[in-house]
């Protein structure tokens, strides 16, 4: 895992091509969002289909603060996180008593309502035209290059990973996983189910808001089209494909689902079929634990290769 992060940093430092920088930035952002979503979907086992909406709330908050008040980036990111979290609480508190499909439907509905607000509240959001000319991040006189945003995103990603890891090892994480595994048992042990579900939802939307603020200042432009249902679905796919509930899985899911469609761009419309196949195979490969399987596959190959070679040597002697 450390190797992957190092590779990420090295690649980010080396690449010059602006297209690659953009792709890497998007992968970082989506890894962020997927890791945040993982708290709700993977650890607590709730089907949240509105992650892109929280991403959008964060992006709009940061965009408005930066354009109207010229707020610095650290204010933007914190405000975006807090506003997004408040929305998370507002949606979560009344709806998290719902289960399974019902909850998914409510979250989809919420995302749609939010999109309609983004489009129609023209005085605030400038409607479908979106907010343009958002100032980029600057520290003192230094204005962030596009590349710098990758590192900005990675820092936040590390924070999410740290928080998730610490929480998973605490009472809170144990309560969340108990809720995922068996709600009735969790209840019987005195765990306040609704409280913890709302907490997970709030944390997830908090980090999604952060990702939104980074994205808004990176692209300098937000519009309702940037945060559609399709993005929420893709994020859910990333979490499930990478291995929901695992710490690093969603990052792999994000990498695969960001880069594979790009690599397959030559195949035009057929590439989505391939992505679909990747999803199905990935999930069938033992419920999203595919990465562990791939790892094991290569490890086994490697060890058997070594064994064969050393066997040959013995034969020669």
């Amino acid at each position: 895992m450390l190797a992957l992060l190092l590779a990420w940093i090295v690649v980010a430092a080396v690449i010059k091509n602006s297209y690659f920088i953009h792709m890497l930035f998007m992968a970082t952002t989506y890894a962020l969002l997927a890791c945040a979503l993982n708290i709700v979907v993977g650890i607590t086992g709730l089907a949240n289909m509105s992650q892109a909406a929280f991403f959008g709330i964060g992006a709009y908050t940061a965009a408005l603060l930066a354009t109207k008040f010229g707020a610095p980036f650290y204010i933007n990111i914190i405000a975006a996180a807090v506003v997004s979290m408040l929305f998370g609480l507002a949606v979560g508190a009344p709806t998290l008593r719902l289960k399974g499909f019902y909850l998914s439907l409510v979250t989809i509905g919420f995302a749609q309502v939010l999109r309609i607000i983004e489009i129609n509240w023209v005085s605030l959001t400038n409607g479908p035209m979106g907010i343009t000319a958002i100032p980029g991040v600057s520290i003192g006189r230094y204005l962030f290059s596009k590349k710098a945003y990758i590192f900005y995103g990675l820092v936040v990603l590390l924070i999410i990973l740290y928080v998730t890891k610490r929480l998973m090892a605490s009472k809170i994480g144990r309560a969340l996983s108990a809720i995922k595994n068996d709600e009735v048992a969790a209840k019987s042990l005195g765990i306040n189910i609704t409280y913890y579900k709302v907490l997970a939802f709030a944390m997830s939307s908090f980090f999604a808001g952060m990702a939104g603020s980074i994205y808004a200042q990176y692209t300098t432009f937000v519009s309702p089209d940037s945060f559609v249902q399709n993005d929420s679905t893709t994020l859910l796919c990333m979490v499930i494909l990478g291995g929901s509930g695992t710490l690093f899985g969603p990052i792999f899911g994000a990498i695969v689902l960001i880069f594979v469609p790009e690599i397959l761009r030559f195949a035009d419309m057929y590439r989505l079929i391939f992505v679909g196949v990747v999803m199905i195979v990935g999930i069938l490969a033992k419920e999203g634990q595919w990465f562990a399987h791939v790892q094991k596959f290569f490890k086994d190959r490697l060890t058997s290769l070594i064994r064969v070679k050393s066997g040959n040597r013995e034969g020669a002697v």
Partner: peptide
């Protein structure tokens, strides 16, 4: 909880008496 160790299953019973909060964790 099937995918949790026996020890952690028992520790879930401690949930209500642990005073740790998020900052502690």
């Amino acid at each position: 909880l099937p995918n949790v160790t026996v020890l952690d299953n028992v520790r879930l019973g401690h949930h209500i008496r642990l005073k740790q909060n998020m900052a502690d964790a």
